[in-house]
Simulated scan of single mutants.
Amino acid sequence: MGSHGAEFFLEVDKLRVQLLNNAEATTACQRVGVEVSHRDILTRIENVILGIVSSLSRDKAPVLAVPNRSSWANVSFDSEVGLQMSSGSSVTTIRSDCPSSVTKFAQILKVLSVIYTLVQSNSYATKRDIYYNNTQLFGSQNTVDVIVDDISCMLKISRRSLHVLATSKGLISGDLRYIEEDGTRINCHSSSTAVPVSSNIGGIRNIVSSAKFVLIVEKDATFQRLLDAEFCTKLSPCIIITGKGVPDVNSRLMVRKLWDTLHIPVFALVDADPHGIEIMCIYKYGSVAMSFEAHSLTVPSVMWLGLLPSDIQRLRVPEDTLIPLTKRDESKLNSLLKRPYFPSQPDWQKEVELMRQSKVKAELQSLAAISPDFLTSVYLPNKLRYGGWV
C-alpha cells in the first residue's frame, strides 16, 4: 500500500466506528423487515381470496386494491432508512368487471395461486418460472415482474418470503466467503472472474471477510477493469460489486447484507452524469417503486466516491472526452434536486449545481485520457487514502 497506508486505514477505522454506532441506532428499523411465518403469508392470501368470494356472494364485481408504487406522494423520507412508503398511500383499483383491468385482475390471481402453492410446499420458483407457467396469460416477463412486486407490496411481505426468486444480473468479487442456503461454499476471491450475485440473499450464511470497505461500481466495464488490475489485492482487502447499471433487487440486497454483517464503509463509483447519480441514490436511499421494502434494500451510509463533477475540473479531464448535457439530462438534474433527500446533502447539491453550470458530463472511462491506468493506480488509491468522497 505504500507510505500512505496508515492514513487510509485510519480513515476507514473512523468510518467503521461511526457505522457500528449507526447500526445500533437502526436495529429497530431492521426488525421491520423480518420474514413473516408461512401461516401468516397463507392467511394474508386467503383473506384476499375471501374478499373476492364475499363480493361475488353479494353479486358485486370483485376488486383488488394495489398500493400505487409510482407516486412520490406515497413516500416519505427518513435519513436512517431512505424512501419508505407512507402508511396512508393511495391505491390503484383493479376491477374484475372493467375491460381495461380484467386481464391484470386474472394475472394477479394466477400469481397469488402460484405463491400460495410455493409457500404451502416450502418450495421456491423464479419469476421466469412463473412466466412460463402461463405465457399466454402474462404476455411478457415484465408483466410478471411488476405483478410479483405489486403482490409483495399489497400483502406487505418481502419477495423472498413469497418464495419467488429473481435471476441476478450483478457480479461480486473480493475478500469474501460465504455459504449459500443449499450448502454451496462461495469464495469470491478464488479466481480472476467475478461471482454472480446470489438469487437467494436471505439464505446466505457464515459470511467471512477481512475487507476494509465495499465499493459499488455502476458499470460492468469499470468493474472488469478493476478485476483485471487486481484492485482488491493491490490496494487493500475489499469487496467490489456491480449491478450492471440500474441495480436489480438482489444486488441491492447483497450490499445491504454486507453492510449489516461487516459494518464497513460502502462507497459508490459512478459516472459523473445524472444517470450515475440516480443509481447511487437507489443504493443509498432506495426507489419509489420499491419503497415498501426500503428497510431491507437501502444503505443510508453509502458515500459518493466518484466520479464527482468537481473532479472533472480538478483533474483537468480532457475536454474532448466530456459530453454535453442533453435536455433530458438537465430535466433529470432538476428532478434530483427536488428529491426529499437532497436538502440533507449540501455537498451533493454543490456537485449537481456544478454539473448544471458546466453543462457537461463525464464517464469514468474519460480518466483513461489522462493515462490508461489512472483510475486504478492514481484516482482510486488517492481518493481512498486522503478522502474526497461526499
Results as ranks from 00 to 15, higher is better:
Q349D: 04
S377I: 02
V246K: 14
I157L: 09
S140F: 04
R44H: 07
L325M: 05
D145S: 15
L155Y: 01
L10Y: 14
K327E: 15
S344G: 03
K219F: 02
R44I: 09
T93F: 07
V249C: 12
L171C: 09
V217T: 01
R328D: 11
T298R: 07
E24G: 12
L380M: 04
L364E: 06
S96D: 07
K110I: 06
I282N: 09
I45M: 03
N382P: 03
S209P: 05
R314W: 09
N206F: 09
D228M: 11
S96C: 12
D175S: 14
Y379P: 04
V119E: 05
I108R: 08
S140P: 05
D271N: 05
V299Y: 02
D220L: 09
A369K: 05
P309A: 00
V378I: 14
E293F: 09
D260L: 11
V352Q: 01
C188K: 03
N122L: 08
L375R: 09
G203N: 06
N133F: 13
C238A: 15
H4S: 14
P62L: 03
S331H: 04
L262Y: 05
M355F: 04
V81C: 09
R225G: 12
R160H: 15
S140V: 07
A166P: 02
A362D: 06
D149K: 15
P381Y: 10
C281E: 14
T222N: 07
I147Y: 01
L64M: 13
S190V: 10
S296M: 08
S190Q: 14
V81Y: 10
I115W: 01
R128F: 10
S287I: 00
R31D: 12
R328F: 01
F105D: 09
E181F: 11
E46P: 03
G276K: 00
C188Q: 01
S70G: 11
P62A: 02
E7Y: 12
S140N: 08
R69Q: 11
S90W: 08
D329M: 00
M85G: 08
Q120P: 02
T193P: 00
P274F: 00
H295L: 10
K110R: 14
V255W: 00
A229D: 12
M303R: 15
L56Y: 04
K361L: 00
V352I: 15
V299T: 15
R128K: 14
G174Y: 00
R95T: 07
Q107C: 13
L322G: 10
M303V: 11
S310E: 04
I94T: 08
I277G: 01
F374E: 04
G51I: 01
A125T: 05
E46N: 13
N133H: 12
C232T: 13
S168R: 03
V164N: 06
S371M: 06
E80H: 15
H189Y: 13
E363G: 12
Q349F: 10
L337Q: 14
F267S: 10
M355H: 03
R177C: 15
Y386G: 06
V148R: 03
E319N: 13
N134Q: 06
R339I: 01
A221C: 01
F223W: 02
E218D: 03
